[in-house]
Design a protein around this nucleic acid. Structure first.
Length: 239
DNA sequence: AACTATCGCAACCGCGCGGAT
DNA sequence: GATCCGCGCGGTTGCGATAGT
């Protein structure tokens, strides 16, 4: 039984699905420009009022994820990425809560970016994206197998896990100046991987708010903004 | 140039929550 | 308390774009 006896929202015959056309976008934007997003209507009524053959839910999604004028498009900045990682460590997959802290970004944007970029890189670094702590080596291998099954493209990077070192001249203050050796076009220097130029070294450069570097036990402590410390325990690679 | 594989994002789906009746 | 209703969330899917062969 459906909770509360709620009807499916999109069961009406003749409703359009799939990608929105420019004309549909225009109608929805016009409606919200005239009526305002403040209220006096509900999303269920929007298709009728705006002259759209869509369900209200689809209209709401289109507006919140794509048409809202305050949306920021384009690549995530380094600061945004760091913030997402920080917030995810604290909040988990509560994308809407995370989105609140990133003005102009939607929960959908953040979720997609997490799943397609950040999560994958964390796993490849041996960090569990759910707990933000390192996997044991067996788990790393398992996760990489899963990645390979889901993404059968041959890896462009060597799959062996290589030792982590911090560059000697790397200080917490100037990390942002370091180049992106990953080859990604993403504007971040976090989660770097071996560029092939070093002697099998994985160089990990972190943007911004590191407050200490490798300890003698080779654990790397990061300060997640005001969230406290996460021990990435990168010394696992020393073995 | 043609074909195939992969990626990334927009959109959909199903569910839970909370307010109203 | 039970039901109705709308909204919002998180997970998943489909497809166009792009890279690789």
């Amino acid at each position: 039984m459906i909770m509360g006896g709620r009807k499916p929202c999109c069961d009406e015959v003749g409703l359009r699905k799939g990608p929105w056309t420019v004309e549909e976008d225009g109608k929805l934007v016009d409606f919200l420009r005239i009526r305002g997003s403040g209220g006096g209507w509900c999303w269920r009524d929007v298709p009728k009022l705006a002259g759209l053959r869509r369900c209200g839910k689809s209209c709401r999604l289109r507006w919140t994820n794509y048409l809202r004028p305050d949306l920021k498009r384009g690549l995530f900045s380094e600061e945004e990425i760091q913030l997402i990682i920080d917030l995810h460590a604290r909040l988990g997959n509560r994308w809407s809560k995370i989105a609140v802290e990133l003005p102009g970004r939607t929960d959908n944007d953040i979720k997609n970016y997490w799943n397609t970029h950040i999560k994958r890189k964390l796993i490849r670094m041996g960090i569990d994206p759910n707990t933000h702590r390192r996997f044991d080596q067996q788990k790393v291998n398992e996760e990489e197998k899963v990645l390979k099954v889901n993404s059968p493209k041959p890896p462009s990077q060597p799959e062996v896990v290589v030792p982590v070192v911090l560059q000697n001249d790397t200080s917490a203050g100037n990390l942002n100046e370091l180049a992106d050796v990953d080859g990604d076009d993403q504007p971040w220097s976090f989660l770097m991987e071996n560029d092939g130029g070093g002697a099998g070294e994985l160089t990990m450069l972190l943007s911004g708010n590191i407050t200490s570097s490798c300890s003698s036990s080779s654990s790397l402590w990061l300060k997640y903004g005001d969230l406290g410390y996460e021990d990435l325990e990168l010394g696992c690679f020393d073995d």
